[in-house]
């Protein structure tokens, strides 16, 4: 039985804006086991980043606030920790790679200063030892000539190197959980390949768990063991990676998978999910996907579907599929 590292239960994070309340994350439940990679996918604005920032307790308040739910990290409630405790946890036990490395690296400090600072803060090493460890980390993430690069400023590094520098910083304290929010979206394919291989290797060598957020389903297929699909602030489907890709249950997941061109898709029209993501200020009644769902029924417009287990490793929030899935399960 896998050991739970992170448990998120019915998490609600809202933003209180001038236009109204944005239920960015609206009752989300999932977990990450020790040493596994959980992929989180979904369209832009569905709440992927807000979910992970909530786990790190980095939601800007105001306008944001965690208004409900529980977050347990190694069994302890993150929401009940003091800010001082959180600072010890962040960067030490769980750390995060942000999408845009340029905005999260400080331009006036060298990359070595920034990594060694984190190491000194969390591991109590002296300046010299911390710098040596920083060089080691840069070498580990595959930056050539780390002894020299360690003294360079972020703008002197290429996009790929900055991203690897960020990873080096995030990993410098051997975190148990690495949250990677679109870690390769800003990179081109060959550098992306380097970064993904690196994350796989480090996961194996250090035994850490990864929460990988991206809307690139190809990246998820290569990296994740389990997948959570989000839509409009909710989790609509969860399952092991193979079942999700081979037998998606939720109509949104299905549409998403069909609409990506694959290397073997061939010519002709691509599948399209009609309509657009709902305005978070005016979420549709019932199932939030119902205005775009080809299979919506009257029930879907009235009542919100319940997140239901339909197989040992599979959960879905859809009126239709929950019933189908249950019948299939019973039949087999």
């Amino acid at each position: 039985m896998a050991e739970r590292l992170l448990e998120v239960k019915d998490l609600k994070t809202y933003f209180y804006t001038a236009e109204g309340v944005v239920p960015a994350v609206d009752g989300v439940t999932y977990h990450v086991d020790k040493g596994e990679t959980l992929g989180i996918v979904g369209e832009s604005g569905c709440g992927k980043s807000v979910t992970s920032l909530s786990v790190m307790r980095l939601i800007p308040n105001p306008p944001g606030r965690i208004v409900g739910g529980q977050i347990l990290f190694e069994g302890e409630s993150v929401l009940d920790k003091s800010e001082a405790d959180m600072r010890k946890i962040r960067g030490n036990h769980m750390s995060m790679i942000f999408q845009e490395p340029m905005t999260s690296l400080n331009p006036v400090y060298t990359i070595g200063d920034q990594i060694s600072e984190a190491i000194r803060l969390h591991q109590g090493l002296n300046r010299q030892d911390a710098m040596a460890k920083a060089v080691d980390m840069l070498r580990l993430v595959g930056i050539p000539l780390p002894e020299r690069r360690v003294n360079e400023y972020p703008h002197q590094l290429s996009g790929g190197m900055r991203q690897r520098g960020m990873i080096a910083m995030a990993l410098s304290c051997n975190p148990k959980l690495l949250i990677a929010d679109e870690p390769t979206t800003a990179l081109d394919v060959t550098i992306q390949a380097q970064v993904l291989e690196l994350m796989k290797r480090l996961k194996q060598e250090m035994g850490m768990a990864i929460m990988l957020i991206t809307h690139d389903l190809g990246v998820i297929a290569e990296m994740a063991q389990r997948v959570v699909v989000m839509y409009a602030g909710k989790i609509v489907e969860e399952g092991d990676v193979v079942s999700i890709f081979e037998n998606p249950l939720h109509p949104y997941t299905d549409g998403l998978l069909k609409s990506i061109p694959q290397l073997d898709t061939g010519k002709g029209k691509l599948h399209v999910i009609n309509g657009i993501v709902p305005n978070p200020l005016h979420m549709p009644k019932g199932c939030r996907f119902n205005p775009r769902c080809p299979q919506a029924t009257d029930l879907c417009k009235e009542k919100e579907p319940v997140f239901t287990q339909v197989a040992p490793t599979r959960y879905v929030a859809c009126w239709l599929r929950a019933q189908e899935g249950l019948t299939k399960e019973v039949a087999s």
Binding site: G142, P144, S158, G160, M161, V189, T190, I191, Q192, A193, Q194, L196, E197, D216, L217, G218, V219, I220, A221, E222, A224, V241, V242, F245, E246, L257, I260, Q262, L263
Partner: peptide
């Protein structure tokens, strides 16, 4: 070849030999 092998493919069961280019452009 390297470029083609680097494309992430949305098929979790596919095992591919990926050519990872060393270094930057």
């Amino acid at each position: 070849e390297a470029l083609l092998s680097a494309v992430p493919v949305a098929k979790p069961t596919l095992v591919r030999q990926r050519i990872v280019l060393e270094g930057d452009v």
